[in-house]
């Protein structure tokens, strides 16, 4: 089991290294550069000043040497300093992380708390009206872009109830009530696709398990449907659901960029948005590495959960 976990983590780190390298290269392909964006509006900027700033930011060096500095810093846990305000990237990210984590967790919570019962109900009453309605809604939930859903929610709540989400963000410590009200709509918009994917996946995997031989055995021994569905079939059908959930974390992280922007939430998503606008390379890189690390970590945990759920994976992992 430990070996299995170790191997998963090693793969994860390799993927993360690859992601960091790719992003490092790709952001330098975006047209426009940080110095010109910073100085463009200032009157009377001379070429010398531009060159000086470029040298300060280390952007005059060859790309390989820049990459060297980046990797060197990364090895020491240093993500560099922001081009914008010269503060350490790590500090900037850690300031913004809580809001994003909260939003992401709320979205997942929304998706799981509604997706699981919907999926179960759909499977137990398959081909019923309830099932058909849910399958239809699930397709919509998966196809609708989260930002569009967010805009619809804002618009219609305002039109029908005259209600709008708060404009000023409050951290949970300052005002938990206002904070949760603020997070409600973006969490729903973000979690809708997760809910739909979980419901669909759980429906099909539960249906398959409910038709399996061992479920028939358990029924033949007089077990209640509650034991059959929740304990036995439920556990067996969890693996594909966890897979979906792990992948959905990626969608949710990506979704925070635009949704935090729409709802004025000062999280990592808006940080990335601002950083891209200013070509603030260290901040972009730092955020992407952070997002990548969260996504990879979640999926390593999902891999480990497979082994917790299924002894066959557990023992295969131990013997390999």
């Amino acid at each position: 089991m430990l070996l299995y976990a170790g191997r998963r983590l090693t793969y994860g780190l390799l993927v993360l290294a690859l992601v960091a390298t790719l992003v490092f290269l790709i952001i330098r392909l975006i047209p426009g550069d940080a110095v010109r964006l910073q100085m463009a509006d200032a009157p009377g900027v001379t070429q010398a000043q531009i060159d000086q700033r470029t040298a300060e930011l280390g952007l005059d060096e060859p790309i390989l040497s820049q990459f060297g500095h980046f990797v060197g810093g990364l090895a020491q846990g240093d993500l560099g300093t922001s081009f914008d305000d010269e503060r350490p990237v790590t500090t900037k990210i850690l300031e913004r992380l809580p809001a994003t984590l909260e939003l992401g967790l709320l979205a997942i919570l929304f998706g799981v708390l509604l997706g699981v019962p919907f999926g179960m109900l759909s499977a137990i009453r398959h081909h019923s009206v309830v099932d058909n309605v849910m399958r239809f809604l699930a397709v919509i939930g998966m196809s609708v872009p989260n930002f569009w859903l967010a805009l619809l929610l804002i618009t219609f709540l305002a039109l029908w109830f005259g209600w709008s989400p708060p404009l000023v963000y409050a951290s949970p410590a300052e005002n938990l009530g206002q904070n949760l009200v603020h997070m409600l709509l973006p969490a729903i918009a973000l979690g809708a696709a997760t809910m739909a994917s979980i419901a669909r996946m759980l429906r099909s995997s539960l249906l398959e398990v409910l038709g399996s031989n061992f479920v028939r055995t358990i029924r033949s021994r007089g077990a209640s449907e509650r034991v059959v569905v929740l304990k036995h079939a439920g556990r067996s059908s969890m693996i594909p659901v966890f897979t979906v959930l792990g992948l959905q974390v990626g969608h949710i992280l990506g979704g925070t960029v635009i949704l935090e922007r729409i709802f004025a939430i000062p999280g990592m998503g808006s940080l990335i948005f601002e950083a891209v606008g200013q070509r603030d390379y260290p901040v972009i890189l730092g955020c992407v590495i952070f997002y990548g690390a969260i996504f990879i970590l979640v999926n390593v945990v999902v891999d480990l959960l497979y082994a917790v759920i299924d002894p066959r994976i557990r023992y295969k992992g131990a013997s390999a």
Partner: peptide, 24 residues
């Protein structure tokens, strides 16, 4: 029927490879 199943009438199914819950 649940009070009958397993208690009065029990079954052994054909395929023992798939008739037990693999997770318990």
């Amino acid at each position: 029927m649940r009070t009958v199943r397993g208690n009065d009438i029990s079954v052994i199914f054909q395929d023992p490879m798939t008739s037990l819950d693999p997770l318990f």
